[in-house]
Design a protein around this nucleic acid. Structure first.
Lengths: 212, 212
DNA sequence: GAGCGCAAGTAAACGCTGTTGACCTGTCAA
DNA sequence: TTGACAGGTCAACAGCGTTTACTTGCGCTC
């Protein structure tokens, strides 16, 4: 198991289990970041890493395994949920706007763009639930917490989706502060107790924002 | 294979350009509906339709062409946007909730579930913009109409996304009327004029819906 | 030191995909 | 009768993710 010395030591060996694993992972990260997930084949990763294709499946089970691993270290929703409850929606809104503007890890951006792929879908399926909805649910801790959390997730994910599908040029052109405020208001609204709080017959602005 | 006269007309010939096209389309629809898009291969469609694989590409350019064609007749957002402006958000909310509950065309449901596929993504990319965001923008007709429309689209698409990724069990367990009301309120909020209307420092319910 | 044994790495294939170009074939017009 | 041509077929292409059987290299024990 433990591989002694590994020639030269220090900076890192170029052979051996851990070294190879790391090399594959690094290549995958670089290629996914630059080309997206779907456009990068197992063979490309392997040849870029200077290893055999079969090793990808040996070490990561399948191409999808690479994704899981990369996302684990990258952290899709880094500690947004812990913290002062009073500013939760503000933090989430800022995070979402930041994502909308293409900020965040280069890998995150690339994966957002590849979000179509079934593999990504499958991996996100777990991550969004476990890294976002579940913690939110626990955090809120009320009866219908899960529903509130799901609603918030919908708003946040929907924004990513619109960016992907339409470009969200108009949204990105808005004053950032104003957009963040609006988003926060939406998230706050997601949190409000379900019940008789709304009056459906009385939309606030049904004619649009200033039809003039 | 059967080689009838096809002069009988009426029910339709089984050979000839239009007949073959229709047969392929029907098979694609049936298979996509039952198995999803990604799991159905060109060869499966062809063999189900009793035609040669090459004909799919001859008549529809590619597998993706089948999708485009099917979606054209199916109508993803059937005339929701025209109508009384005062009830626009209500209609959209009801539509979204209905989709959330898995109602709508069987094909729509199936395609929602396959939404991952790059092909679907590409086709939806055009459709969501042209069948939802563009009309909404025109409909609203204000300065920042596009931004409002994008925001509404985000909420609606996000809901689909959450259903896909998490199941949205909690949301579907809610009283349907309450959920629709909340959704309508969210959409109304999307429509409000951007400006100094919100006070970001004062979240409505930051501790969650009744931490008790 | 010789030989064993296992982990690391490799080569070649498998079965599948969407797609294409060359080839038949039946029907209709000249 | 002959030609043209649309409709239909077949076999192949290039690529994919993945797997199986194999070779190599290294440490450990006898």
């Amino acid at each position: 198991m433990d591989h002694p010395e590994e020639t030269g030591g220090g900076a890192g060996p170029t052979r051996g289990r851990e070294a190879t694993r790391a090399r594959i992972l690094a290549s995958a990260k670089e290629l996914f970041t630059n080309e997206g997930y779907g456009s990068v084949s197992s063979r490309m990763i392997a040849s870029h890493a200077g290893v055999n294709v079969a090793l990808i499946n040996r070490y990561f089970g399948a191409k999808r395994g690479l994704l899981t691993e990369l996302l684990r270290e990258d952290g899709v929703f880094p500690g947004l949920i812990e913290g002062d409850p009073a500013t939760l929606t503000r933090r989430l809104a800022e995070h979402a706007v930041s994502r909308l503007h293409g900020e965040g890890t280069a890998l995150q951006r690339a994966l957002d763009d590849s979000a179509g792929d079934p593999d990504l879908q499958a991996v996100y399926q777990g991550r969004i639930t476990s890294a976002m909805i579940d913690p939110l649910t626990v955090y809120l801790g009320a009866d219908s917490a899960r529903a509130h959390a799901s609603l918030m997730a919908a708003v946040i994910l929907g924004l990513t989706r619109v960016r992907l599908v339409e470009g969200a040029t108009a949204l990105r052109a808005l004053d950032r502060e104003l957009l963040t405020n609006r988003l926060q208001a939406l998230l706050d609204l997601c949190l409000e107790d379900f019940g008789a709080s709304e009056e459906p017959g009385e939309p606030r602005d049904a004619n649009g924002p200033g039809k003039s």
